[in-house]
């Protein structure tokens, strides 16, 4: 036991760490939404496209969901320059996380599509609903309900996953934590604060998502 905790010393670095947290959130946000678009296209392609398209998308999904995001980013960061494509660390991580998100969100959104049952569409047609009304009253609520919980969980997952950027010296939360710990040597304190900030970030995100879910989709979500 030769370690004396000095949390006070690190307190003055807190604003710097929190500044990094914003970048973490931005990274997660961008990857999530870009991934959601890819996922939507993927889910539509898999559901409505032909056999070939299905296979192509499936290969993409299976490959990215069965290999580590970190190694994928290594390929992007160290490999692409061989092809003459040089991406900044931030862009490399963003691209890697986005492709990952796209693969997972393809599967999640496809499950949402599949939750809409044919009988309900027929019922909507019998009631004389227009296409827009069918989407508005039948399809959208269904998809929202099925997707809400897995999407919320996935969003938390991507916030935590964005910490990988620290490995590539991106100055998000984990990257800045590494910086502070190597300049102050108060390693345990720095990473404890960092962990605390991640907990706060995800708790706030969960709480917001739960609120949105309750009001927009009438989903009863537990915040914890």
């Amino acid at each position: 036991m030769d370690y004396t905790f000095q949390f006070g010393v690190i307190a003055k670095h807190l604003p710097y760490l929190i500044g990094g947290a914003w970048l973490s959130l931005l990274l997660a946000f961008l990857a999530f939404w870009a991934g959601a678009v890819i996922g939507l296209l993927g889910a539509m392609g898999k559901t409505f496209g032909g056999r070939v398209l299905y296979r192509v998308i499936d290969v993409y999904v299976v490959f990215f969901t069965n290999t580590p995001a970190l190694v994928q980013i290594y390929v992007i960061f160290y490999g692409l320059p061989d092809l003459g494509i040089v991406l900044s660390p931030f862009n490399s991580v963003l691209l890697g996380l986005t492709l990952n998100c796209g693969a997972y969100l393809t599967e999640i959104q496809r499950a949402g599509f599949q939750s809409v049952r044919r009988e309900e569409l027929e019922a909507a047609e019998t009631l004389g609903m227009s296409l827009w009304q069918t989407v508005r009253y039948v399809i959208a609520p269904h998809i929202a309900k099925t997707l809400y919980a897995p999407l919320s969980n996935f969003y938390i997952w991507i916030v935590l996953g964005s910490s990988m950027a620290g490995i590539f010296a991106v100055e998000e939360l984990t990257g800045r934590a590494i910086n502070v710990s190597s300049s102050t040597f108060r390693t345990i304190e720095v990473f404890t604060y960092t962990a605390g900030i991640y907990v706060v970030l995800t708790v706030v995100a969960s709480a917001l998502l739960a609120l949105i879910g309750r009001h927009a989709f009438r989903v009863k979500a537990r915040i914890f």
Partner: peptide, 24 residues
């Protein structure tokens, strides 16, 4: 349960590494 599901694995790795080192 609530806390350790909200800490990135990478950050936890650093915490374990430095804690074991710090306490010798």
């Amino acid at each position: 349960v609530e806390i350790f599901r909200r800490i990135p694995f990478l950050v936890l790795l650093f915490i374990v590494l430095f804690t074991t080192e710090g306490f010798g």
